[in-house]
Design a protein around this nucleic acid. Sequence first.
DNA 1: ATTGACCCTCACGCTACGTGATACTCTATA
DNA 2: TATAGAGTATCACGTAGCGTGAGGGTCAAT
Lengths: 245, 245
Amino acid sequence: MKVKEVADLVGISVRTLHHYDDIGLLTPEQTTESGYRIYSEMDLERLQQILFFKELDFPLKKIKEIIDSPSFNQAEALEMQRNMLLDKRDRVDTMIRTIDKTIKYKQGEIVMSNKEKFDGFDFSHNPYEQEARERWGDKAVDESNAKMNRMTNEEKKEFEETFHAIYRELAVVRHEDPASEIAQKRIGEWFEFLNQMGTYSLDAFKGLGQMYVDDERFTKNIDQFGNGLAIFMRDAMAVYADKRK
Amino acid sequence: MKVKEVADLVGISVRTLHHYDDIGLLTPEQTTESGYRIYSEMDLERLQQILFFKELDFPLKKIKEIIDSPSFNQAEALEMQRNMLLDKRDRVDTMIRTIDKTIKYKQGEIVMSNKEKFDGFDFSHNPYEQEARERWGDKAVDESNAKMNRMTNEEKKEFEETFHAIYRELAVVRHEDPASEIAQKRIGEWFEFLNQMGTYSLDAFKGLGQMYVDDERFTKNIDQFGNGLAIFMRDAMAVYADKRK
DNA sequence: ATTGACCCTCACGCTACGTGATACTCTATA
DNA sequence: TATAGAGTATCACGTAGCGTGAGGGTCAAT
């Protein structure tokens, strides 16, 4: 599909599509020789995601971060957006009630406190942003990705070998208690290793562990070294983090 | 009340209040000798109005025009805003349904057309702006007549656009009484429009309205412009026809 | 008399596009 | 086959609605 077709379909401007391309938020899969942007089905689905987040007042930059995050999971996102929209509807309902009250108030039928007059507004913060950040946005995770990108291929290989080694060592003890001494020692090595790249707080570390289980791409990857390793690591990482706080 | 008290009460920033003062949208009634802005009850009520319009995506400039218009009437405005919020809730509901569909679609349970994937979006125009302009703006009435005249001269595409425009205008008032003045005025435009294509008798017009509800192909088509529009149109068309016989 | 929370006014920065200007591409039709 | 008309492209500057300091007064409490 060409720009205008897409624009008309979803009700946004051509300029907006150009803009999304400029900032790398939505770059069409194909372009013709003459430079026309051609949007695929997948592009459209990405656009749908973008618009949902936008409706919920996420800035474009954050939307990009979220959607491009390696741990992004569309099914989860949709469910989250659903909840946010339900919230939004509640807010609109509250505002409608506020209007009804105001009408009566104006007719002298009831009294209204100042606070009541503004019920349903309060845009002061985006309550969903935190939520999204917790699920996909952890700065620590992003940072380590950025570092990964800056590394050369050689370095990457070396790096990979090191952490595969740690995985293997962990896999060996994965049937032990996650709180056991040996498990904690090895998970400690893991923590230190990660801290060589980016700085992981204990909370971020714990969160990362949870992600190993929640995001099946991680789970698959990790469980290659031994079935149930992801779950074991999550538990061990939680114990490790909690003990040190 | 001083700036921060107001800001905290309604959940906006102090800077925003400054900005509204700068552009003359909300200038506090009083200032202390030292230059502190002091907001009165009336200022708060004006602010409430402003925020309602803002929630409905009116630009600040237009909000100022509207509120400062000599023909502005607060009671009327509140009622209008109420309708707009009802519409907004409909849109949110539609989006929620779209999400639900998308979830099922992703699981392979159903198929989804591209149009369906973006149901509930379409920000392409603010249907309320026109409405507000008509009630409180200056240009008022002739515009629709002018539209009609241009229509006869031009081609099919514009033709279609025009009647979509009428649908949209009708959709805006669909929460009003079908017998109300505004509803009748707009349904009258519809009648005239149809009579430029073929000649409709009043009875045929009424019958057509009934068909909008009986034939679900019509219903679907019409309700794209707003849930319940078909039923509203049928009722308004019936009233229109009966009154003129 | 001092501190800390609040207030003021510039004034520049930022996001998410809007709005031309200028030029190329594609398709339908005379 | 030439030409118009609708669409597309890339600059590049403009705009709205604030955010974010900087630099400096004000006010009540300690």
